[in-house]
């Protein structure tokens, strides 16, 4: 726990647009236990960043683990990370391995 998985990638998404522009599915107690990116909207910050991809699984957001979090909790955490004015970016630790 807390160790980087070998296939993981840290992606820094600058808040370059008014929305983050991703859709996620999954969370604890579902078929997809970690949140997975299912859509990246054109024109959103994630799309502008160019490094997030559909199908990637989100392991951490700003260093906070997604493990054990139910869908709404994971979604809320990501929304708050985008909304806060403390940072001008959101750091995602993602993996292509599901």
């Amino acid at each position: 726990p807390g160790l980087l998985e070998p296939t993981s990638t840290l992606v820094r998404v600058a808040k370059s647009a008014s929305t983050l522009g991703i859709a996620i599915e999954g969370g604890a107690n579902t078929r997809q236990p970690l949140p997975r990116i299912v859509t990246i909207q054109r024109g959103g910050s994630a799309h502008n960043c160019g490094q997030l991809k559909v199908g990637q699984v989100i392991l951490e957001v700003n260093g906070v683990s997604m493990r054990g979090r139910e869908h709404r909790d994971a979604a809320r955490l990501i929304a708050e990370a985008f909304k806060t004015k403390e940072r001008d970016h959101v750091d995602f630790l993602v993996t292509d391995f599901n």
């Binding site: 929305t19 983050l20 522009g21 991703i22 859709a23 996620i24 599915e25 999954g26 969370g27 107690n29 579902t30 078929r31 997809q32 236990p33 299912v38 859509t39 909207q41 869908h71 709404r72 979604a75 990501i78 929304a79 985008f82």
Partner: peptide, 15 residues
């Protein structure tokens, strides 16, 4: 007896 082989699907949230 009912077997639970799969977990339910998740909702999708746009962020």
């Amino acid at each position: 007896r009912e077997k639970r082989l799969t977990l339910p699907p998740s909702e999708i949230t746009l962020l």
